[in-house]
Design a protein around this nucleic acid. Sequence first.
RNA 1: GCCCCCAUCGUCUAGAGGCCUAGGACAUCAGCCUUUCAAGCUGAAGAUCAGGGGUUCGAAUCCCCUUGGGGGCACCA
Length: 487
Amino acid sequence: MQSESETSVRLRFAPSPTGYPHLGNIRTALFNWLFARHHGGKFILRIEDTDVARKVEGAGEIILDSLQWLGLNWDEGPYFQSQRLPIYHEIAHRLIEEGHAYLCYCSPERLKTMRQEQAKRKQPPKYDRHCRDLTQHERTRLEATGITPVIRFKTPLEGETIFYDLIHGPVTFKHDTLDDFILLKSDGYPTYHLANVVDDHLMAISHVLRADEWLSSTPRHVLLYQALNWQAPQFAHLPMILGPDRAKLSKRHGATTITEYREQGYLPDAMVNFLVLLGWSLDDRTELLSQEELIKHFSLERVGKTAAIFNKDKLEWMNGVYLRKLSLEEFIQQAMPFLDRDLPKSVERPLNNSYVSQVLSLIQERAKTLAEVPQLASFFFLDELQYDTNLLLRGKPDAKSAAKAIAIASQKSEKVMTWDATTLEGILRPLAAELNLGTGELFGLLRVAVTGRTAAPPLFQTMAVLGKEKCLKRFDTALQSLSTYFN
RNA sequence: GCCCCCAUCGUCUAGAGGCCUAGGACAUCAGCCUUUCAAGCUGAAGAUCAGGGGUUCGAAUCCCCUUGGGGGCACCA
């Protein structure tokens, strides 16, 4: 399986800390990681922090944190481009010496008005190469003004660049649609194009898997590799992930950062499984795959070309599947922090472990996310239930007979020696017939009295977990609120 | 405006010329199970494969055009 050439498979995830990672970013990381692991190669992490102005404090940490949470472990790095500035300078100047780049003194203002003119004439915005062929005399004069120049790449004026994309096949760009892009900014930092190419080469990256939005800058990169006389890596441009409105993922789409999904109670394995199916598939039926299976089967041949719209319903479903697959112990371990975080303050902490365990065994199969757990389970922990008394009267019985039913149920329950679900059912089920009520009606009534809601885990199991004392007390409370209806 | 990419149920997708009267999953609806909810099971509905031309005995699959969508065109990545 692992050939000699595959030992040099080296992938990287190279995010910029200009924002928190969203699903698209993470999906890119995931595909890189899967490809590396599948081929027994290396997965490298590199932080492309070359935009000083847009840098978001803490974003780097969140990126690392997100990858770790998902289990996307890396073998090298993180490398920081901001710490490698001398390397980019050296390469940029080498490019100048070899005639592949030049100093440009144009001011941002000049560039701006130039672009406005071009827009007015409905022409594509392109640098007009004003400084491309400056004479030594002109250069000296501009140098004297104290302007800090940028370094631009001398894009060939004619011809075309063709590269083979592992997903899209051959892609062609004519050089006259490209312009002389900047390599080194006047603040001394490299642009993405330079830093990315230099680092991919220096870090011996074999395959570049990145989002489709990079496809149109790939010819620039290929040109750079050629100018530097370096071998370019293989490129594979991944389909994008769009929001429900078909637009690029952004803040408007709700929880866009991966850490928010963690806070909302999604499991990392479910996230990975869901994300991988956005653009990749194993066959025509397999939906649920473990990380081992993904590593085993992942391949670029099965990556699609079409952008995917992120569908939260399916994520929720899948998370529910993963939640139910957990052992009770694992589920408790995962849910406990959410209970701690979201249960009302009035509930005494720390929570009782064995009680929580009993409660969660009833909740596990009903939760789609861990964040739902406290809400689903709250009535188990509350001292007093808040609910609309009308809920007690949803069924056939009027207030008087409802009260009677609860009162008798309460009396019978009180006499129960072994407080468990079977015993409770044994005495309460016959009660329905005695009272001439359907089981559904009686149980529904008792359910509201005991839980304060119409949808809850099975009544007798719920009562068993709640305990005798609480149940009787809640029956009492229900009777009191009912009494206001006929007093 | 120019360049590039893409196009199968609402959504994620299978499909690499005949296996397709287009398969699976989520969501939806109905039924079963059932003390409610959830889960589970069964079934239904849902795509004239964006449209139009070709090529071929035969096209969702190959080619061209149109349309639509997305992306790029910064001293941002």
